[in-house]
Design a binder for these strands. Structure first.
Lengths: 364, 364
DNA sequence: ATCTGAATTGGTAGCGCTGTCATTGTGATT
DNA sequence: AATCACAATGACAGCGCTACCAATTCAGAT
């Protein structure tokens, strides 16, 4: 080992009195070498502070320890939570993360998948289940485990970790019905439409239909006012509570007897709460408010906001674990992992026994 | 080119009727080859769909296109914004990002820096200016551009992109004084202390001292109630508005005549607003509220919240640009780049001419 | 004693690219 | 015409590692 260089496998081998290739085996597949050799090599590694050169390893083995992770947005805290799980799960493993951001653009997603696959990743983790046909086929032929995350499907490319947005939307809507709300609006921004949002919407609609409460005028889809081609999501804008304030005003104007609003996400719920405060509506008596994701930003609201807890951190963590299990040859036999959701029941929908529904309906 | 393989530089060279090394030059340093050759090689690249193998390139040149980016947290939206800037700036370049999360742990930061430097990155981008001495020296000897971001300092390791937190804290406090507030509290959670938060606090204190308004009892530092060793930040917890509600209660109990609260960040400001609403305090008349960062979550609050806009996206973007300029040998002569801040003046501190300050002081 | 096969170790030959030379050809200089 | 400088291209070797195959050892079977 020259003084100016970091030690190489050859240096380790020399110190351990074996050939470089044997040292390689002792390090990578310790099970197939003798105990004595393994100990000698490990001691040499320790002594020299040897760290394998990952570029050389990747070049020689056409197999890497890189996990490609593709998310549609870095602006939404949703994906921060997922990434936190991913990075925490990766930390104790030899894997490294390559992160890509599609900005909700299918073409960009295809480009990123193609780019990442050139590096022969150990695994690919992508967000959502609605990849384009080209993206699907690229991933199917990737020759590595593929984990789709966030949403569930009966037809995963390989495996999927998430929860059902339809069930989640249904569950929250049932909760609102059980609390005595009868005119339950849904607030939704079209500029940010995606399959997951649509799933929640479907769950809401199904629950209302089952209860005989469905009315199309309860759906408030705010269209982006900007006539440019790109959706707001693609331009990196993020949903803010501000978007919801005009949304609630329009919903109340359109459908005055609305007694609860199920918001497609928490920033909207916060905005609805502020608009209700601004208009002097009592929450939860006059208006029930429910959010989605149970994100940190709504903790501390007054009144406290009901939301639907989604296992975002867990999804990221579990996606890595699943990929790792496949890489190590011990895959979970079940390719579809539903991590479930839960209603975080708080004051903003807590109308039980406090106010007869008929009174509430009569407010306008 | 064998059918089962992606094309290599040799394939390109064969098609362009030149040697592989010449093809390499045509691709990497097009300026030094003849126009004719360059065009032949480019045509071959295009035709074969050739993409260089980055692992091989890294191995051969001991120089990579990887930028190591180290942030203290993925949970805070602050860093999501920075990362968005980083990833957007990197997209059109040949650079790739390696992201590390220190969880606000200096030891983990040292580990990550060491790990990243083994890959001979093209540049390192780290958060903050308060690296440990070991981390500083590792970065100083890295042999690549180093950009510190978020905070400014007179003594950067190499270059720094950010803004002065002291100035920012000062600026907001001046704004509150100019609005007629005289008993301006500062809300701060000790569990999340870091040099940047402390800087803002110093700015606040300096502005009050200059105006003869400083009083130590105006500082509300909430200590984490959890007696475990690790700070809350390190455990991945995030500040929520909920933390601020008890904080405001204690501040008002301790220092009843407080007429404004400058919050160390926006989630706290939101919590203070909710607590004010819960207590029936009028904002901005009885209590002025100012946040920090001007993050999306406060847009739409009622009353709208004043905050201090910080150029988070721009910092990430600019940090990459600076690194790139150094790599390409055209560095900005100025190693310290101050992107500045601005008060986003909104209703929660808009008391000018509306209420004589003496009345507000007398509320309790 | 010979053979067989498993367990263990070593040798060779690259992976795809680029650093460092050496070589060729061209026009300018003396 | 001889010399030089420089631009353009090529040859060689090697970055650090591992796939592949060969060699060795040794226990147990024949």
């Amino acid at each position: 080992m020259r003084a100016d260089r970091r030690p190489t496998l050859t240096d380790v081998a020399r110190l351990a009195h074996c050939s470089p290739i044997t040292a390689s085996r002792a390090i990578n597949t310790p099970g197939i070498v003798s105990v004595d050799l393994r100990e000698r090599v490990m001691a040499a590694v320790e002594h020299l502070g040897y760290r394998p050169n990952l570029n050389a390893r990747a070049l020689a083995s056409t197999r890497t320890h890189v996990v490609g992770v593709i998310v549609p947005s870095l602006a939404q805290h949703i994906f921060s939570d997922v990434l936190r799980g991913v990075y925490d799960a990766v930390q104790p493993t030899p894997l490294r993360v390559h992160l890509g951001n599609t900005h909700y653009d299918p073409a960009e997603e295809e480009r990123l998948i193609g780019e990442f696959l050139r590096h022969k990743p150990a695994a690919m983790i992508v967000s959502g289940i609605d990849q384009s046909p080209l993206a699907r086929s690229m991933l199917a032929d990737a020759g590595c485990p593929v984990v789709q995350m966030m949403d569930l499907t009966g037809d995963p490319i390989d495996r999927v970790v998430g929860f059902s947005h339809v069930d989640a939307g249904y569950k929250m809507t049932r909760h609102l019905i059980d609390q005595g709300y009868r005119r339950i609006g849904y607030l939704f921004l079209v500029g940010w439409m995606n399959t997951r949002s649509v799933g929640r919407l479907q769950g809401w609609q199904r629950a209302l239909e089952e209860a005989g409460l469905y009315d199309p005028s309860l759906l408030m889809t705010r269209t982006s006012k900007d006539p440019e081609g790109q959706s707001r999501q693609q331009r990196g804008e993020v949903i803010t509570p501000l978007h919801a304030r005009a949304g609630l005003r329009e919903l109340l104007a359109m459908t005055p007897r609305v007694d609860a609003v199920f918001c497609n996400n928490d920033p909207l719920a916060l905005g609805v709460l502020f608009e209700a405060i601004a208009q002097g509506l009592r929450v939860p008596e006059d208006l029930g408010i429910a959010g989605f994701n149970d994100s940190d930003m709504i903790l501390g609201a007054h009144p406290s906001l009901t939301s639907l807890r989604t296992p975002r951190y867990e999804i990221g963590f579990r996606a890595v674990e699943e990929a790792l299990a496949v890489i190590q040859g011990q895959p979970n036999p079940e390719p579809i992992i539903d991590l479930g959701t839960e209603v975080s029941f708080r004051k903003s929908t807590d109308r039980c026994g406090r106010l007869p529904m008929d009174e509430a309906v009569g407010r306008t």
